[in-house]
Amino acid sequence: MISYNTLIVLLGTGVLGIAAGLTGVFLLLRKRSLLSDAVSHATLPGIALGFLAALALGLDDGRHLPTLLIGAACSGIIGAGAVQWLKDHSRLSEDTAIGVILSSFFGLGIVLLSYIQTLGTGSRAGLDSFLLGQTAALTREEISVTAVMALTVIAAILILRKELTLLCFDPIFTAARGLSLRWLDMLLMALMLAVVCTGLKTVGLILVIALLIIPAATARLWTDRLSLMLILAPLTGGISAASGALISAYIAHMPAGAMIVLIAALFLAISFIIAPAHGLIHWRRRP
């Protein structure tokens, strides 16, 4: 029998998986999947600085979730902006810029975390969970923040589905129709950032990208219809997130993030073999 607490955790992570699956579809189609990896890694210095700020302000001995999330979002935005800036103002291509920003921000974050450990306040343990996720230790408050953020993302995507589709398929036509590419792209980045920040506590920042990419990629293998992708991706995302959280709740010291990613990857692997049209079996059978 699943306890009430576990049930709440399952619901929270499930909704997060659904939001990540939906956002991931548009990131994949806009070819921005990897940028989310840079952004998620870039949140680490922000989390550490948020912790120091909260500590200085005397909030909850540093582990004050809103402050940590605001820090994460700010440094995530700076990371994304830095990738864009490097791409526009140097001869570096986007993948190089992503590699540079991802590793340097993450490095800075680790240095800051180590510094926090030397402070001897004994609360670094709370920050470690941001790296790999720790669903079992989620508080009621954290779960409600997760659910509200995820539901907001889901609602935004359902309302703006048409516009996001246009942006991903034909940006030139989108601009010619009088829509602002800059605003639409920023909106997509904002949705991605919301998923990343929401997923920090559950999946952890190292692996949250998987929840964005893998369900969307799985859905793409199954269908050539966007409407179906927008059902399959959140479905596999939600199931992976909830079942991964469930398994990690029953096995001691099993990081939820890693479990969630493995289940999502399992869905992808199965799809890779049996999916119609794009699957291995079908592909082999083709004349």
Binding site: I159, K162, E163, T165, F169, D170, D224, R225, L226
Partner: peptide
Amino acid sequence: AVDWDFPASALDVVAMGLYADIGWG
């Protein structure tokens, strides 16, 4: 100018011409 390996049908693409009529959102 576009990547035709996009999950849309011919009808979906033509409907994009109506998006402004339909109204954003």
